[in-house]
């Protein structure tokens, strides 16, 4: 954090950091059993960094929960393990494959792993009795998110009802819930994609290497470059080629596309993001493209 004593001004990034730290501390103080939902992506890494700062020199006073689709990028899991080990925080992995095997979620053969994460996540929250779950959602990501509160109430089915949202004034957060309900907490609500990158550059912390430009064997599907993988066999007509690419988001490997890019440093990524013409989700997330209201529907069901 930089500060200028002369006029007591904080940069917008420092103000965002201060606001997010306030939210982390408020939740840790008022909720019995919080958990931080960690995807391994850049937003959840910023969340871990903010949580680290909020409670330093004490350890983060809640565990980290990751929903393992079974189709995660190995580079992302490596980064996750490095962070968890450095912070000494407890990691809970909720596996979609186990949830499928145990009948907690049912595979109809048509539903994507991303969608199966919802049932797996809700089961993990219920089973562990978590009362608050931090998510990395940002309001600039998508239209439905623009109206979501920092404290977003979920009923006992884990569902979001946009019409029943509580007014949220000043920095006074209302964390009251009834048994069986929980609160989703979005400390990064006011951050934009560019803010996230600036913060990562400023903090110089580890992020998964697939965010940086690298050589990868890819094939084209639904107008996106997807990674060659055993999880994702190519169909006839799909040709595997080698390209210089990077990922703008990290999700389910079978659905997350990469973009051709030479950006091999955060600074170059910032330049690229600043002139990007398509939103990160629109460009590379197959799961958001199915309908204009895709995100709204998944959120109502209990998505991140």
């Amino acid at each position: 954090m930089t500060q200028s004593h002369a006029d007591y001004r904080l940069s917008q990034l420092d103000q965002l950091e201060a606001e997010s730290i306030h939210i982390f501390r408020e939740v840790a103080a008022e909720f019995e059993k919080p958990v931080l939902m960690f995807s391994g992506g850049k937003d959840s890494i910023v969340m871990l960094r903010l949580a680290e700062k909020a409670f330093y020199p004490a350890k983060i006073p809640f565990p980290v929960l990751q929903v393992d689709t079974g189709y995660d990028f190995p580079e992302v899991l490596e980064t996750r393990d490095n962070w968890v080990n450095r912070l000494g925080v407890r990691l809970i992995v909720a596996s979609v494959e186990e949830a499928l095997a145990n009948g907690i979620v049912v595979d109809d053969g048509k539903t994507s792993r991303n969608r199966h994460q919802i049932g797996t996540l809700l089961h993990a929250i219920e089973e562990n009795g978590f009362t608050a779950a931090f998510g990395g959602g940002r309001r600039d990501e998508e239209k439905a998110r623009a109206k979501e509160r920092v404290y977003s109430h979920r009923d006992d089915f884990g569902q979001w009802d946009p019409k029943m949202q509580r007014p949220e004034l000043w920095s006074l957060y209302n964390g009251r819930i009834h048994g069986g309900e929980h609160m989703r907490i979005f400390p990064l609500s006011n951050w934009t994609e560019l803010d996230i990158w600036h913060y990562l550059a400023q903090e110089k912390v580890e992020i998964p290497s697939i965010y940086f430009s690298h050589q990868r064997r890819v094939f084209k599907r639904d107008n996106m470059w997807l990674s060659e993988s055993d999880f994702n066999p190519t169909k006839s007509g799909e040709e595997v080629v080698e390209k210089t690419v990077r990922f703008r988001t990290v999700g389910d490997l079978t659905l997350t596309g990469c973009v051709e890019s030479e950006a091999d440093t955060i600074e170059k990524i910032i330049e690229e993001v600043a002139i990007a013409k398509v939103t990160e989700r629109g460009a590379t997330r197959g799961d958001d493209r199915f309908s204009e209201a895709a995100m709204e529907d998944r959120k109502k069901e209990g998505y991140f």
Binding site: Q12, H198, K204, V205, S209, D264, T265, E267
Partner: peptide
């Protein structure tokens, strides 16, 4: 580890954060 310092193939024409500016602007 992939940090900004040791990211693969870092080239010399890397823009500096100050040039990019966004972090230091203020908020309304």
């Amino acid at each position: 580890m992939a940090t900004p310092e040791n990211a693969p193939g870092k080239s010399s024409d890397n823009p500096s954060l100050d040039e990019l500016g966004v972090g230091q602007m203020d908020l309304l």
